[in-house]
Simulated scan of single mutants.
Amino acid sequence: MTTITKRQATPEELASCQSWELWESGDTDRFVYQYDQDVQFIVQSGEAVINSATNPPVAIVPGTHVTIRKGVDGDWAISSAIVNRYQYL
């Protein structure tokens, strides 16, 4: 079962997501998070690969729209500091 999905954000989504919450990875090169609710986000800047036991690795870059479902344990390998706009579903 795929619990992380990604696609290119539309121009409308890129504009409307600016009102969503902001998350920045800072200087870390690894971030581990257990998702306790569904979330969607659009990458504003940076690059990373999200690894999980339930999904193949998901590479993200600016403009990527990602949905992560509740129950995913995400292990982020960050190659360039990430800035996301996110909202819980």
Rank of each mutant, 00 (worst) to 15 (best):
M1S: 11
T2P: 11
T3I: 10
T3Y: 10
T5C: 04
K6Q: 14
K6M: 11
R7C: 05
R7K: 13
Q8A: 11
Q8S: 09
Q8W: 02
Q8F: 02
T10E: 02
P11Y: 11
E12M: 11
E12F: 12
E12G: 04
E13L: 08
E13W: 00
L14C: 05
A15R: 08
A15N: 07
S16G: 00
S16Q: 06
S16P: 00
C17Q: 10
Q18C: 01
Q18S: 06
S19E: 14
S19N: 13
S19Y: 08
E21A: 14
L22I: 12
W23G: 00
E24N: 12
S25G: 15
S25K: 05
G26C: 12
G26E: 12
G26D: 14
G26I: 12
D27I: 06
D27M: 10
D29K: 05
D29C: 02
D29W: 00
R30C: 12
R30P: 03
F31G: 01
F31V: 01
F31C: 06
V32I: 13
V32K: 12
V32R: 12
V32W: 01
Y33P: 07
Y33A: 08
Y33V: 10
Q34S: 05
Q34G: 00
Q34T: 09
Y35N: 05
Y35L: 05
Y35Q: 04
D36M: 09
D36R: 14
Q37I: 06
Q37R: 15
D38Y: 06
D38I: 01
V39T: 13
V39E: 15
Q40A: 11
Q40W: 07
I42S: 06
I42R: 05
I42W: 04
V43A: 03
V43I: 12
V43T: 07
Q44I: 09
S45L: 01
S45I: 02
G46S: 08
G46K: 03
G46M: 06
E47I: 08
A48E: 05
A48L: 03
A48R: 08
V49L: 02
V49N: 06
N51A: 09
S52C: 09
A53W: 02
A53C: 09
A53K: 14
T54P: 01
T54E: 13
T54C: 09
N55Y: 13
P56H: 03
P56R: 01
P56W: 04
P56V: 07
P57Q: 11
P57K: 10
A59N: 11
A59M: 11
I60T: 07
I60P: 03
I60Y: 07
V61Q: 13
V61P: 02
P62H: 12
P62N: 11
P62W: 13
P62R: 10
P62T: 07
G63F: 00
T64W: 05
T64N: 09
H65E: 05
V66C: 06
I68N: 05
R69M: 15
K70V: 10
K70N: 13
K70I: 09
V72Y: 08
V72A: 12
D73G: 06
G74A: 15
G74I: 08
D75L: 10
W76G: 14
A77H: 13
I78K: 00
I78R: 01
I78Y: 02
S79T: 14
S79N: 04
S80N: 10
S80L: 03
S80G: 02
A81G: 14
A81S: 15
I82W: 02
V83T: 15
N84I: 13
R85E: 01
R85W: 03
Y86I: 02
Y86D: 01
Y86R: 04
